[in-house]
Design a protein around this nucleic acid. Structure first.
Length: 723
DNA sequence: AAGGAGTAGGTTTTT
DNA sequence: CCTACTCCTT
């Protein structure tokens, strides 16, 4: 098969266009990845560009892996010398090679946002900044935001009375010093430092400009200032940029992505050719028409209209639910129908604006006995037990990693409590020592009471012993040894709950991950494995054998596609979100998010909203989302749940408090339960009580419901058992 | 050092 | 309403 086979005219043009600066505006489902991969293959095969002369930047590590795989499959030979990765991954690679020019020490480590949070918290505490007035998150945001814009503490200008900027800049400054002292680098620093080194080192810059004849960047609409500056810098000579993206799918403005980047590209890069991929191969005509109708309401678009010569498809179902539970129950019922009609659970995705919305959906799915999977929860390498284990490894790798030491000095508990730790901190601060050095001084100088002294000494010896014992081991074996010597597994196995068991599993999984890393990397080292752990989310992909309905936020649905898609909670204040409704720019991003969601659907799209929703504990009447009014009537199959009027009587009854959850896998329809059973195991919900029998503990109740509510049951109970 | 009480806060997330 | 975290008691 040749590279240019099976491409439409626009795709072919994008793939085969002579070396030049290219902007490929690729609409949803227009074969963007295919074009990107094919263009690289084409450059290699037809323009005799060496893989080593190509750099490809992707949005996630997963995308990077997939790109390399597809490319190698297409070319039938490995392209190991090509640089493929995320901006962060590539920057890391660069800094490892040029740590001296970058002013880093050779074995610098990457910290993630949680580490960063803890460090800033510590620093602010030392500065006596009250957390209520100076939220750590805010400082963290301040620092990262400055870094994303290429701004160092010394560049920040503030007025004499600007306490806010003055204070945060001070923290930023101390934080920078801390990172230098501890030999660590955060995510934003990877990019900023790389940019600075290239900018200030002409020979190095020219070397890379000469090497990378072609730089290809995917998801260009999601680049931030520093990333754009980096691309601009490196594309400064006889080399070319291929930027692929879709301004209509820019949904990360809130974390620094600049939609303007894709808009100003043609001005900043010489003779840029713009190619539009507008033929969609994913969705039906109806779905596409509806999506187009929504996105058309945005101003400032580069302009693009998707079309398809696929089938018209069914109408889009718009369900107006009575409340959030009715909404969830409608979704679940519809899923059951779809499955009955031959759909696989894997084909179905439920999308929502915020994670909190998943709970009600989950409850209904559990009741229906439908297996589901939630995307984008806690990431593997972010789990507490994994981070503990990694902290040991970090400490072994670099004794002066204070954050690592703080994390595990008393995990598992070994009698080095807060009092001792504070003493260690104080001495470290006074003499500009690392915590490890300070701890050793406490031992050698006999500065502690006997009990603390012994505990601390044991800790120091433990670390030093592990260090010698693991010196020549492969990384997986090193980790196993650490887990054993630090009794981490023992520590977690004390927890007999599901959670404890899961933690043990995860620790074992960590060993496997290390082994896999070892197998896949020629020069695997502990230092590289730690970097891998920081840069990779370690998402398990489609693990597991059971087919699952997929639940995720609209944001995490980007780049995916499903035959059947539900978008729930289309209500003013929820989607578009309350906090994004005031400013036009933010509302436009919400609209793009809606567009992204809708264009995930291949065959069938369901949109739902609830008239009454329980949010933060109280019920609120909600207007349908403004996006729903953009949809052409003729594309819709409108349905609605019970009217509000009927149920409001139920809701208005005086109801005593009760708390409980229905056990999983319980089926309810028209069954009789003892009230004790039900009140103890009920979740709130909607239902009708058909009949009562007996009284007191022997009271039995017949209910007809999707899920019967605690409130309702409690009301019934109160009615039959007056005080 | 663990568990209970009390309370603050509650978009979106990858690296 | 639910959670995650702090603080306070044993």
């Amino acid at each position: 098969m040749t590279i240019t086979e099976n491409l439409n005219q626009q795709q072919l043009m994008a793939v085969s266009y002579q070396p030049a600066n290219l902007l490929v505006l690729a609409g949803a489902g227009s074969g963007k990845t295919k074009v990107l991969v094919s263009r690289i293959a084409y450059l290699i095969q037809n323009h005799r560009i060496g893989p080593a002369n190509i750099m490809a930047v992707t949005f996630t590590n997963k995308a990077a892996r997939e790109m390399r795989e597809r490319l190698e499959k297409m070319l039938q030979f490995p392209v190991t010398s090509m640089w493929v990765g995320t901006f962060h991954g590539l920057a890391h690679r660069f800094l490892r090679a040029h740590w001296q020019e970058a002013g880093l020490s050779q074995h610098f480590q990457i910290i993630d946002s949680e580490d960063q949070f803890r460090i800033i918290k510590r620093l602010q505490k030392d500065l006596d900044l009250a957390e209520e007035r100076w939220p750590i998150k805010q400082t963290q945001w301040f620092i990262n935001n400055k870094k994303d814009q290429g701004i160092r503490p010394q560049h920040i200008q503030y007025g004499a009375h600007d306490i806010f900027d003055k204070t945060l800049t001070k923290v930023y400054e101390l934080y920078t010093e801390y990172c230098k002292r501890n030999n660590v680098v955060d995510f934003a620093e990877l990019l900023l430092r790389t940019h600075e080194v290239l900018r200030d080192n002409l020979s190095l810059l020219e070397h890379y400009q000469d090497r990378f004849k072609h730089i290809l960047v995917d998801e260009f609409q999601d680049t931030n200032d520093i990333q754009y500056a980096f691309v601009k810098l490196i594309c400064g000579r006889d080399n070319f940029l291929t930027a692929v993206g879709d301004d209509d799918q820019s949904i990360y403005g809130w974390r620094g992505a600049k939609i303007e980047n894709i808009q100003k590209l043609t001005k900043d890069f010489k003779d840029t050719i713009t190619i539009r991929l507008e033929q969609n191969y994913r969705s039906t005509k109806n779905i596409l028409a509806a999506s187009n109708a929504v996105i058309e309401k945005n101003s400032n678009r580069l302009g693009k209209k998707l079309w398809t010569d696929g089938e018209t498809g069914g109408l889009i179902t718009l369900y107006s639910a009575m409340n959030d539970i009715d909404e969830a129950s409608f979704i679940v019922k519809s899923i059951l129908h779809e499955i009955h009609d031959g759909a696989s659970r894997n084909d179905i995705a439920i999308l929502y604006r915020s994670n909190a919305q998943s709970r009600v959906l989950e409850e209904q799915l559990i009741q229906a006995g439908l297996p589901y999977r939630i995307y984008g929860g806690m990431r593997f390498f972010d789990r507490a037990e994994i981070k503990d284990a990694l902290a040991y490894l970090r400490l072994l790798n670099n004794e002066n990693d204070d954050a690592a030491l703080e994390r595990i000095i008393n995990v598992p508990t070994r009698g080095v409590g807060n009092v001792t730790l504070n003493k260690i901190r104080d001495l470290a601060k006074a003499n500009n020592l690392s915590l490890w050095q300070s701890a050793k001084q406490h031992i050698s100088g006999n500065l502690l009471a006997a009990r603390a002294h012994n505990s601390l000494q044991n800790f120091i010896e433990l670390i030093e012993n592990i260090k010698t014992e693991t010196e020549n081991l492969a990384i997986a074996e090193q980790i196993e040894h650490v887990l054993f010597r630090a009794s981490l597994k023992e520590f977690y196995s004390k927890d007999k709950s599901d959670r404890g068991r899961m933690r043990l599993d995860n620790l074992n999984e960590l060993v496997s991950a290390a082994r896999e890393f070892d197998d896949n990397n020629d020069e695997a080292s502990m230092s590289l494995f730690l970097a891998h752990a920081a840069l990779e989310s370690g998402d398990d992909g489609n693990s597991g054998d059971t087919e699952c309905v997929q639940l995720m936020t609209l944001h995490s649905a980007k780049g995916l596609e499903f035959p059947i898609v539900f978008i729930s909670g289309l209500e003013q204040g929820l989607f578009p979100h309350q906090l994004s409704m005031s400013e036009p720019d933010k509302l436009e991003e919400e609209r793009r998010l809606c567009y992204v969601g809708m264009t995930r659907a291949m065959q069938k799209l369901y949109l739902t909203h609830a008239q009454l929703r329980r949010l933060h504990g109280n019920e609120q009447y909600r207007r349908p989302s403004c996006f729903l009014y953009d949809l052409p009537e003729e594309l819709l199959d409108k349905r609605s749940g019970m009217s509000l009027f009927t149920t409001s009587t139920t809701y208005s009854q005086k109801q005593p408090e009760s708390k409980a959850t229905i056990p999983q896998n319980t089926s309810f329809e028209n069954n009789k339960y003892s009230i004790g059973q039900l009140v103890e195991h009920a979740t709130f919900g909607v239902g009708t009580i058909l009949n009562f029998e007996g009284a007191g503990d022997n009271l039995r109740i017949q209910v007809n419901f999707k899920s019967c509510g605690t409130k309702l049951l409690a009301a019934a109970y109160a009615k039959l058992n007056p005080l």
